[in-house]
Amino acid sequence: MGIKDRLFSSFLDKFTTISLTLLIISTAVMLIQHEIAAQQQEETGVTKKELVEEMYQKRLEQDKKIYKEVQRLFGMRQYTAAQEVLLKVQKEHPDNPRSFIYQARLHYNTGQLVKAIFSYRQAIEKEPDFVDDQTPLFLGKAIMDDLMAAKETFLQELKAKPDDKEVRKALDELLYLQRRVAGGCE
């Protein structure tokens, strides 16, 4: 049986073929219209990419404003004062994940390495973009530097006290953080 016979041999076949053709044409026309409308909207308005960039820019500016004082005190190595201001900021902005980064850095700079590691973990759990080098929030290199230095200290401490559970747990956390910063699938 040829294609022509198969498509038009009876009334039912003719009906099916014509209906299918009409349905395909209607769907295609609707899709094309939708696509043209979406493109026109995109041309007149902002693109998805621009929206995302704008969102990150806003966040960076907001963070800069919120943590301005903490950053200043941190730069002057006034860690106690910086900690006090950070606590205030944390109360005012409990959902802002960057405070965990500052907290980790404060712990790190005051020699509280175990606490620093846990704060880094909290920061990354709350905001995975901190270790995503595709986003402007990426802080992976700075975090990795701290982790590498802390790892040396933990290994030395474990040599001296092999049964220290706290340090062992912190080392596990640190290794996890290193794998996160290394990238790959989450």
Binding site: E35, A38, P128, D129, D132, Q134, G183, E186
Partner: peptide
């Protein structure tokens, strides 16, 4: 190719890689 609105595409994380 046409990226209709019901198809999502992430802008960070593994989707952006």
């Amino acid at each position: 190719f046409i990226q209709p609105s019901f198809i999502r595409q992430g802008f960070s994380g593994p989707a952006a890689q």
